[in-house]
Computed example of a mutant assay.
Amino acid sequence: MNNSITFEDFSKVDLRVGTIIEVNDFPKAHRPAYQLTIDFGTLGIKKSSAQITSLYTKAELLNKQVVAVVNFPKKQIANFISECLLLGAVDGKDVVLLNPEQHVDNGTSVA
């Protein structure tokens, strides 16, 4: 790795746990994706687009806790505004979502 960052750089990234409360198909996305609505507790409800259709069904995602970056600027994807970025391990074209091993409160900070 040649792009080292400082702890101060890392501390600018706001990683939080949230629970997916709504999952919809996203037919206007260039690659297969879902539109997700995620509850981050006191931080509120945020939306995200995720290209995770190859490994997850809508039923599997509903009520699943996930980890996301919540302080990126909003990004328009087709006709949808994404407000956070889910974290996952990229295995080829598949994305395996990162999530807490045990249930934690929505909005819990990840350090």
Score class of each variant (00 low, 15 high):
22 E>K: 15
64 K>Y: 02
10 F>C: 05
70 V>N: 07
32 P>F: 04
42 T>K: 15
21 I>W: 06
67 V>A: 09
53 T>N: 01
100 P>I: 10
88 G>D: 01
89 A>V: 15
52 I>L: 01
5 I>K: 11
25 D>Y: 10
9 D>K: 00
110 V>T: 01
68 A>I: 11
40 F>N: 12
20 I>M: 07
38 I>S: 09
72 F>H: 13
27 P>I: 01
85 L>G: 02
100 P>M: 05
103 H>Y: 14
90 V>G: 07
13 V>G: 07
95 V>H: 01
104 V>R: 05
41 G>Y: 07
75 K>P: 02
72 F>C: 14
59 A>W: 00
80 F>G: 03
18 G>S: 04
36 L>K: 07
66 V>S: 10
10 F>D: 04
59 A>Y: 00
73 P>C: 04
60 E>R: 14
5 I>N: 14
75 K>R: 15
35 Q>F: 06
95 V>L: 10
34 Y>I: 10
109 S>I: 12
60 E>N: 15
36 L>M: 03
67 V>R: 03
41 G>W: 05
17 V>M: 09
49 S>V: 01
18 G>M: 04
93 K>G: 11
101 E>F: 13
97 L>Y: 05
106 N>D: 15
97 L>M: 10
107 G>H: 13
11 S>M: 11
73 P>Q: 12
103 H>E: 15
84 C>E: 04
60 E>W: 08
